[in-house]
Design a binder for these strands. Structure first.
Lengths: 180, 180
DNA sequence: AGCTGTTATGTACATATGTACACAACAGCC
DNA sequence: GGCTGTTGTGTACATATGTACATAACAGCT
């Protein structure tokens, strides 16, 4: 039995996962199929069942990747702030910045919430995500304030994505200021 | 041409819509099929296409019904409050009360958010829902506070549904007090 | 009763979908 | 070169699904 060298290409796997998120963003979990993902990732259909045991595994891993990416950027943005004022501004950014609370990210979050409700492993992922966000906030605020801010970020982001006339940056800033 | 008397039974239609929500709650939009809904409503498959032009119409009407029911109860709960203290307690109830922020309601909300993102008519429904909630809050609080409370209710409800150790009623009360 | 238009149902069918699996391609080693 | 075990693909197939539609059931009317 020579050197095992189990070397299946992680690149392809990663590309499929990324494509899965693209497809979910465009068609929803309901419209996500092996074929569509394969087309989006530009891999043959056979690759799907080769790399992933089934639809569940595919979606679970894709959503886990999403949580990692998003919470990573969340933490980065907050870590970049040094003063309390900076931290407040970072929070405002996380709510109103078009490059963060993008329609795509919001959409994927909704799909994740819905999917995780019926998928125990993903519930764990979401709990970890939430805890990581709070930890990032705790670098600048008290534990209590961190919890409230976390909830407000969530709620305002959602409402802004629905509202026909979303709150302006100044309004959001006023709300954040009021909370700290 | 005698009296038109178009009398097709609205009962059956309503029952199908209710069953649709049940099926969505149990299997998600992704797992909702005409056959499953028909079985849940105890009607023949043919009734599906007879009463609803297609899956889209079915889901759109079902989610619209959900929004009406939920926002109705939201408004009722707040209208029952007479003093400011009562109003605060009502808000706390809306967040922590097991009969309101039920797993089922949260789950259906997530599915609705995700679905509405790709369904323009439902976006209007959601905007109306949000506006109605804010109006109910404005009976007791200023417009600004109403907006924040609305967002906090949303965010805290979601986080409570994810959190392994959700905030207690007292903690939530403290947060609400802090905001008004 | 018979006639007529509306309401409702069972069923058939084209298509989409998840998944398995027989094979191909290929790297490493002799 | 040939041999071998692993990695990757094209394809076939059973099943699930949306939807149409030919009838049935029935209410109202004469």
């Amino acid at each position: 039995m020579p050197s095992p060298k189990r070397r299946y290409d992680p690149d392809r796997r990663a590309r499929i996962l990324q494509a899965t998120l693209d497809v979910v963003a465009e068609h929803g979990v309901a419209g996500t199929t092996h074929r569509r993902v394969a087309a989006a990732a530009d891999v043959p259909l056979g690759s799907m069942t080769y790399h992933f045991a089934g639809m569940d595994e595919l979606l679970t891993e894709a959503f886990t990747l999403l949580a990692d990416q998003v919470s990573g950027r969340f933490t980065e943005r907050l870590a970049a702030a040094s003063t309390l004022d900076d931290a407040c501004e970072a929070v405002v950014d996380l709510i109103v910045d078009e490059s963060w609370a993008t329609p795509r990210n919001m959409l994927l979050s909704y799909e994740l919430y819905a999917y995780a409700a019926r998928n125990p492993p993903l519930r764990g992922v979401m709990q970890a995500w939430m805890e990581k966000s709070r930890a990032a906030l705790r670098q600048h605020f008290t534990a209590e304030t961190a919890k409230v801010l976390d909830a407000v970020i969530e709620g305002l982001s959602i409402h802004r994505s629905v509202d026909a006339h979303p709150a302006t940056r100044e309004e959001v800033r006023a709300i954040v200021r009021r909370l700290v």
